[in-house]
Structure formats: structure tokens, C-alpha cells
Design a protein around this nucleic acid. Structure first.
Lengths: 109, 109
DNA sequence: GAATTTGGTCGCAAAATTACGAACAATATT
DNA sequence: AATATTGTTCGTAATTTTGCGACCAAATTC
């Protein structure tokens, strides 16, 4: 296992950011957010990539905790993991709302 | 050049997320936000990695538009690019605040 | 029980990322 | 003009990511 060189919040935020750091995965999250039926097939249809690749991206999002899947044989239904979604939202919000040092406002032009 | 398979906002958001998808780069942004002196050397001191690697991460953040650098020979001063920072903030805010479909609330347990 | 449907997994290839030391460039100092 | 300081670039290695086709597994249907 990789050792932690940074504080846990930094690692966690980076982990969420990394999971969101691909357009296909952003597209998946946007799609899931607005759908009430979110089967694998629907997601696959929406994306310009092979199903094996879609499955990989879904696994990445699941590993990051941003989504979860449930088997409804023979289909698989995915949805946003609201608890972790809210946590990610909070971490990003804290990150972007930290006050920027004013002295430094025009350090670079 | 890579063709765009996704909408521009999705690509842009993913680009910002990707740039933030490493703990060292999160740590750099946090450090820059609170410092009024933000020379390369200060950033390097703060991180547990070699200076060549720090330089690479700074380049990644610069390419993403999140920071900018200015030469103050013999040092280099970095700071947050406030315009793009604000845009990233907006894109993430829109993303996390899109309303989630209610019908789907308990699609997975 | 063969065929179909739905997705996941495997194996592979190409490309990108991460990390480092060494060498380099530019300026300032001795 | 040598030396020192500051930070980038180069070359390299190891790992990870991305993407795909082919195959596999489970359940249903013919």
C-alpha cells in the first residue's frame, strides 16, 4: 500500500478530483444525476466508447465512492452515492472558498 | 490534437479536475492560497518530493490555467490565476449543485 | 438445454503520469 | 572569470491510465 505523504483531507480531495478527471466520468456523473433509470446500457448508449471502457470508468467512480451499483438481473443499476457526493461537494467547496492571501493579489500579472 | 468527444464544459471541468487529481498539486494550491511569498523554493520546501518533480507539477497546474509564474531573478514567483480559479470554482459549483433526480433517490442501497 | 441478453473480466497495446538525478541556463556574487 | 543560487529541462524508469476486442458468467427465454 502506498504511504501517505500528505494530510488525509488533501489525499481525499485529490482522490475525488482524480476520479472526476476524465470527461467520460464527468459525463457519467451528469447523466446519473438527471436520470431516474440509470442502467449500464443507458450509460453506455450515452457515451462514445466501448462497453469495456465504460465498465472501467464506472469501476473507477465506484472505487472513489462517488457512485454505487445494484444488480437488477439481468441489468445493473447505477446511481450517485449521495453521502460521498455530499462529502466531495464539501471538500471542493472548502477548497475553492479558502480565502486567498490578499497581499499576493498581483504577484503575477 | 485530440478530438473533442464531449461537450466543452465537460472537457473543461474534467481538465481542472485532472489537474487537481494529485495530492501534491492540491497541497501546492493550498499553499499558494495562504502565502504572500510563493517562490518555487518555498513550495519545494513544503513538499516531500524532488525539485524536478515539483517543477513538473507546477507546469501541470500552469497548463491547466490554475496558476501562473513570474520570474523575479533569480527566483520564480508563483501565484493562483484568479480568473481561471474563479471559473473552475463556478464549474465545480454548478456540477455539485445540479439537482439530483429524486425518483432515483434509493435506486441503490 | 441451446440461445439471448446484460455486463463484467481478461489480456493486450499505446499513451500518459509520476518521480528522480544529472545537466543546463541565467543571474548574482566573490 | 570562477562560484553559487535558483529553477527548468533532459533522459530514463516504473507505474498507471485509457481503450478495445474477445471471452466469460448469470439469468431469462425460446
Amino acid at each position: 500500500m502506498a504511504e501517505k505523504k500528505y494530510c488525509i483531507k488533501t489525499e481525499t480531495l485529490a482522490g475525488f478530483a482524480k476520479a472526476l478527471g476524465h470527461p467520460a466520468r464527468i459525463a457519467i456523473m451528469k447523466f446519473l444525476a438527471k436520470q431516474d433509470t440509470c442502467y449500464f446500457g443507458d450509460i453506455h448508449e450515452e457515451l462514445p466508447i466501448a462497453k469495456a471502457t465504460v465498465s472501467q470508468h464506472l469501476t473507477a467512480l465506484k472505487d472513489a465512492g462517488l457512485i454505487q451499483g445494484e444488480i437488477e438481473t439481468p441489468k445493473v443499476k447505477y446511481c450517485i452515492n449521495r453521502e460521498n457526493w455530499a462529502y466531495a461537494q464539501q471538500l471542493f467547496s472548502e477548497f475553492f472558498n479558502m480565502e486567498l492571501c490578499e497581499k499576493n493579489e498581483d504577484c503575477c500579472k
